[in-house]
């Protein structure tokens, strides 16, 4: 079967972002960009399915600017067979990405699409579910284990209070949680090999999707700063502060 892994280029998770002075957004020029950490887990899961002999073909798909090609190359170095870039300079929101991915899915006809559970920039946590809805496919979000047997995917999900197990009839959508796997490091030989793997470029126009935003961002601000704290010398001083100053115990 064919598996699609969707990947997004985001500000690296270690970067402490700054809000722009004009409140139009956050500063992302000259900031290190990487593959969204949850998408790395999604690609790793897809590649492992291939290594198990469950999947034959792993396609990495990204939607965004031309620089998203770098992110696709990382996915190819992890082990995806080829890439598809839906290239646009329009700032994409989850609904637009879900529609673009639907168009790609309809062309590629995969049995499984794996996405990250959320992107660490917009923290929306929507795209996988929206794609499932648009396709009319079943979904399992926050997956921590994937087990494919014939036409059925048995997925363990992380939910509030514990774990739950669902069975989905393929084709289906799965979003990856942190504990699904430990993504492998990409090695230099694999980075070199990834350069030779094919990447198809699509556009929203060719896919017949209007990528325009539906939500307008009026402003982006710094969160309210906390008043500076103090260091206390010992446990007695801490208990005294909590009882008499903060009055929380």
């Amino acid at each position: 079967m064919k598996v699609i892994a969707a990947v997004k280029r985001v500000v690296d998770y270690n970067v402490n972002v700054r809000v722009k002075a004009d409140q139009s957004g956050v500063e992302i020029g000259n900031v290190k960009m990487s593959m969204n950490p949850f998408d790395e887990i999604a690609v790793e899961a897809a590649v492992r399915l291939k290594e198990q002999g469950v999947a034959q073909d792993v396609v990495a798909v990204s939607c965004g600017t031309a620089q998203s090609q770098e992110t696709l190359r990382t996915a190819l170095a992890i082990g995806a067979d080829r890439g598809v870039l839906v290239q646009t300079d329009v700032a994409l929101q989850p609904l637009a990405v879900a529609k673009l991915l639907r168009a790609v899915v309809q062309k590629e006809q995969p049995a499984l699409v794996i996405l990250g559970k959320q992107a660490i920039d917009d923290d929306a946590c929507q795209t996988g579910q929206m794609l499932a809805a648009l396709l009319g496919w079943p979904q399992a979000t926050n997956a921590s284990a994937i087990d494919i047997d014939g036409g059925v995917a048995r997925i363990t999900r992380e939910v509030d209070g514990g774990l739950e197990v669902l069975e989905l009839t393929l084709p289906a959508i799965v979003t990856a949680d942190l504990r699904l796997n430990e993504p492998r490091y990409v090695t230099l030989p694999n980075i070199m090999k990834a350069k030779k793997k094919p990447v198809d470029i699509e556009t929203p126009e060719a896919l017949g999707v209007d990528p325009a935003s539906r939500l307008e961002t009026l402003r982006v601000e710094e969160p309210a700063a906390r008043a500076p704290g103090i260091k206390v010398a010992d446990v007695a001083a801490l208990v005294d502060k909590l009882k008499n100053e903060a009055k929380v115990i």
């Binding site: 929101q93 989850p94 609904l95 879900a98 917009d122 923290d123 929306a124 946590c125 929507q126 795209t127 996988g128 579910q129 929206m130 794609l131 499932a132 809805a133 648009l134 979904q139 979000t141 926050n142 992380e158 939910v159 509030d160 935003s213 539906r214 939500l215």
Partner: peptide, 23 residues
């Protein structure tokens, strides 16, 4: 915005063809 709310809400939004506003 719990595990179950986040699971279902985007599905509803996509079917209604509206953007969802998270969290």
């Amino acid at each position: 915005a719990t595990a179950s709310g986040k699971n279902v809400a985007p599905r509803v939004a996509a079917k209604l063809d509206v953007a969802q506003i998270s969290d």
